[in-house]
Simulated assay, not measured.
Amino acid sequence: MPTDAPIRLAIVDDHKMLLGALTEWIRNATADITMVAAVASWPELLTHAEFPVDVVLLDVDLKDNLPISLKIATLKTAGVKTVLMSTYSDPNLVREALGAGALGYLVKSEDAVMIVEAIRSASKGESYISAELDLALSAGDVGGSPKLSAQERRVMALYGGGEPVKSVAYQLDISEETAKSYLKRIREKYRVAGIDVGTKVALRKRAIQDGILLQTDMPSGTY
């Protein structure tokens, strides 16, 4: 795992059961994220002794009538990266949130391992959008190449370049399960765009076509 200081994380969710489950899961999931606050309301976050933190996992659906753009702006001013969670996928809300400066947006039905990846991406200033939401955002873009996150592009380049999943996971310092989840997301995004990358050969050809992989990067004997 990374040797840098752990990412200091706060979670804000007014569903106490989910808040408890998320807190417990993240604490046991990885050593590079430290849970420093788990609160049920926006004011509790701002007045918490550990605030400001590095990243906030923020529930979009808090019943406080405060605009999400205002919350994101407040966190940004404090130097805090924001990853949003929601129980539903509303493309307009996602666009508003990203426009306001959110770096991540997850639907709560997303695979648990993706929460950790979203937090890590945000801490590095990279965007991370839930696969379900990304598909909703690109629903009208059939025919064009889908938008991949920086980590998805890395996975596609390595895997398309001939590396087995285990090697991809090792080189990117992620679990094999997470690497497989990324490949699943990549293939689903291309499928919705009307492009079949179901096989490794098809994925490799598409990676070259989209400029993610250069033919000179290909190991000998892959053709």
Rank of each mutant, 00 (worst) to 15 (best):
T74Y: 07
G125D: 04
A73W: 02
A73Q: 12
G143S: 05
G104Q: 02
L22F: 04
G211L: 05
L19E: 06
S41R: 10
G104T: 01
S69V: 03
L46G: 02
E117A: 14
G160I: 01
R185F: 13
A38S: 15
L45M: 07
P146Y: 04
S181K: 15
K205Y: 02
L103S: 10
I174Q: 04
L19F: 13
S149A: 11
A112V: 02
A136N: 06
E110T: 09
D210S: 03
V94I: 15
N65T: 06
G144I: 04
K205V: 00
K108L: 03
G160E: 04
S69A: 13
I26R: 03
D90V: 06
M17I: 15
A49H: 11
A139E: 12
L158E: 10
D134G: 15
T82Q: 02
D54Y: 11
A202D: 05
D210K: 00
G162M: 12
D13C: 02
D59M: 00
P146S: 12
D54Q: 10
K205M: 09
W25A: 08
T47S: 13
P164G: 06
A179K: 08
A179S: 15
D59E: 09
Y105L: 14
V55M: 07
L203D: 07
A169P: 09
P52A: 04
A157C: 09
G221W: 00
I174F: 05
D134P: 00
Y105W: 15
D217F: 05
I195Y: 02
L103P: 10
G161A: 09
Q215E: 15
K189W: 03
R191Y: 06
P164E: 07
K180H: 12
T3R: 07
D14W: 03
D210P: 08
D173L: 09
V83C: 06
V53G: 08
K63H: 13
A150M: 01
D111A: 10
K124H: 07
A139T: 01
Y170D: 15
W42H: 08
I212E: 07
S109C: 03
D14A: 09
Q209G: 03
K200S: 11
V39A: 01
I208M: 14
S149C: 00
L137N: 04
M35P: 07
S145K: 10
V83Q: 10
G194A: 03
Y190G: 09
G198H: 00
R187A: 15
G194S: 05
D32R: 06
N92M: 10
Y159N: 13
V142H: 10
R95A: 15
